[in-house]
């Protein structure tokens, strides 16, 4: 029975990480269900955390400016942004840290909006507790982040378009006129799709072909 191979409990800060934590209010989107200030204060004395703040809008220009300044002033080597889903703003914050010389993979997010404040509304105690745990989890992960470099690969400058109706035709012409090769695949013997069958079309009331 193998349930072994588990590394030692990983709470230490063996990488000597210098982490900045930002708990975003997103206006009221997060702040109405999560006590952001409390979450930020709670994270402040976690291993590896150099500074921890709540912030009105992390993604806004002033928000990003502040974080970048903090990174430079405090020699932070990684940040945790506790805000919306990484599926939304991970690229934004990756770029942000990169612009002040951090590797983009040294940024970690905790999802306090889609997966906390919005799904535990009017439950400020439990939502705040969960937010604290989510931030702890992100910090723990952040301590073990490693810089990574993107590879570049050659790419074929050509597009396949599946379907030769009005949308496929328009996309094909836009691409081809911009100098890209296009292969347009249509199941029927002619392109044109449903549009070709129409007499007049709204709102202009003119012919479709």
């Amino acid at each position: 029975m193998t349930t072994s191979n588990v590394p030692k409990k990983s709470s230490g800060n063996e990488n000597n990480a210098r982490i900045g934590v930002y708990v975003c209010h997103c206006g009221l989107n997060i702040a109405q269900s999560v006590n952001c200030k409390q979450v930020a204060e709670g994270a402040a004395d976690t291993d590896g955390v150099v500074l921890s703040k709540d912030i009105p809008y992390a993604c806004s220009e002033p928000g990003q400016q502040q974080i970048k300044q903090d990174i430079l002033d405090n020699g932070l080597d990684r940040v945790v942004i506790a805000s919306c889903s990484p599926r939304l703003h991970e690229p934004t914050f990756k770029q942000m840290v990169q612009s002040v010389g951090l590797n983009p993979y040294m940024m970690e997010m905790a999802n306090l909006r889609e997966q906390c404040s919005w799904v535990h509304m009017n439950d400020i105690d439990n939502a705040t507790r969960k937010a604290e745990t989510l931030v702890d989890m992100a910090i723990s992960r952040a301590r073990h982040l490693q810089p990574l470099n993107e590879e570049t690969l050659p790419l074929t400058k050509k597009t396949l378009i599946i379907g030769g109706g009005v949308a496929g035709i328009q996309a094909a012409l836009d691409l081809a006129d911009s100098g890209y090769d296009v292969t347009l695949v249509e199941k029927q013997p002619s392109i044109g799709g449903i549009m070709a069958q129409l007499d007049k079309t709204f709102p202009t009331m003119d012919c479709s072909i």
Partner: peptide, 17 residues
Amino acid sequence: MTDVGRHPRIKLLTLSE
């Protein structure tokens, strides 16, 4: 539509899947 048929950069494959 006809522009697609004669565009030098567009390869048109109809009755194709």
